[in-house]
Design a protein around this nucleic acid. Structure first.
Lengths: 226, 226
DNA sequence: CGCTGCGGTTACAATCTGGTTACAACGCCG
DNA sequence: CGGCGTTGTAACCAGATTGTAACCGCAGCG
């Protein structure tokens, strides 16, 4: 039973959604604000229905935060009264998966939810988001909190750096081609030169300090951590 | 480099789409009918932009056919002038991933395409940890780690050497002609003298040490490992 | 003997690859 | 709006890799 988090500050609307989603066989929770959503969100949630205009943090901010800082990959469907093209583009640019304008038809919402879940349900474990703490010698990653530490000292990594490190650390010793890395970390978002990976690797090496020497290139194959 | 098939019977619209998709870095093809789409569609297409009203087979029929009979899983985005809720629901029910009504804004189409591809590109190469090393006596190849070992000692092989060794090791005792080797390792890339293979064999022999003696030439036939 | 075909080996230049830096573009945040 | 961090690209450099030609030895053979 897929689990859906509804984030909206209109209680009536939330109830209608919840009623119909429950009817359709989903398990639902309601958050009245982005802040509440952050505390309610569980690792096993499968999808978020998100309003944009909320008191405090906006839906866009929440989406960006989830994607970037929590490295969360579940679908986010924006449900909003904002209807301009700029609103739509912004919603997709912060990592949204769909954009439905109010007033909406419930069957449409259900259809779009189903379409999204069909895409994401198939591959069970796309990222190492399952495990708690990935560790290699003095280096440790906490995927849930998006924190990387080296001998207890916290590293300040950019999202891409974090993604690359998490990927390499998920299978130490294994070689990942630049293509692999682009696929996994950039999530296939269009066209980036593969040499870009090199640059990020270099930046990672520097931040890793002595451990950077263990981020190795296998000529003609790719990069690995060992 | 993602590859997109545009299926629409209005040439003008197709051209506008193609022009803009090309600009955005996608590779595009155009089919003017569902039937043409069926012949044009390649296994490495990543997404389909599909009109509903077409001469002959409708977009819905095409989508259903692709999903059911070809077992195709790539995203299908419907682009259509039909705007009723019934049309939308039908589009999702035949396996569509999104539904955009004409007239549409190009940025919106691009954003929705990007969102779809982001979902499907990730598990593209979900490296199943099938680290099966190829072994022959003290010699072992681990394709996963891009490492060749000989009695536990790491060999430092160049890509071509690696390719040749992997090929010979795939069928120990079998003879591979220089042509075979060029074909398999060089992937038919242009014109390289077959004597070049000899040079690489020599370098391999040296790196293999004592085991190099087992890299044998069969006069007039080729090389083999035994 | 010399000639010939074949393969091993070496040397060297051309090319490729990866490390690194600098810089421009973008988005975010105050 | 302006500063800041992040990101993608281009450019340069050093070193590894690669292709070619040349030279060598060997076996077969008239």
């Amino acid at each position: 039973m897929p689990r859906i988090l509804i984030v909206d500050d209109e209680p009536d609307l939330c109830e209608i959604l919840q009623f119909n989603l429950d009817l359709a066989g989903y398990q639902t929770e309601i958050a009245a604000s982005a802040e509440e959503a952050l505390t309610l969100l569980q690792p096993d949630h499968d999808l978020i229905l998100l309003d944009i205009m909320l008191g405090g943090m906006s839906g866009w901010d929440l989406a960006r935060t989830l994607r970037k800082e929590r490295n969360l990959n579940i679908p986010i469907l924006f449900l909003t009264a904002k209807t301009t093209e700029a609103d739509l583009l912004k919603s997709f640019s912060v990592g949204g998966d769909d954009f439905i304008t109010k007033p909406f038809s419930l069957p449409e919402v259900l259809a779009r939810i189903r379409a999204c879940l069909r895409r994401t349900a198939a591959p069970q474990a796309p990222m190492p988001s399952t495990s708690q703490l990935i560790t290699l010698d003095g280096l440790q990653l906490d995927p849930d909190r998006g924190v990387a530490m080296i001998n207890g000292a916290r590293l300040n990594l950019s999202p891409k750096e974090w993604g690359i490190l998490a990927l390499l650390l998920s299978r130490p010793g294994c070689v990942f081609s630049r293509e692999d890395i682009l696929h996994q970390v950039w999530h296939g978002e269009s066209c980036v030169l593969d040499r870009t990976v090199d640059v990020h690797i270099a930046r990672l090496r520097r931040k890793l300090g002595p451990m950077g020497a263990r981020l190795i290139n296998r000529q003609g194959h790719g990069y690995c951590l060992e």
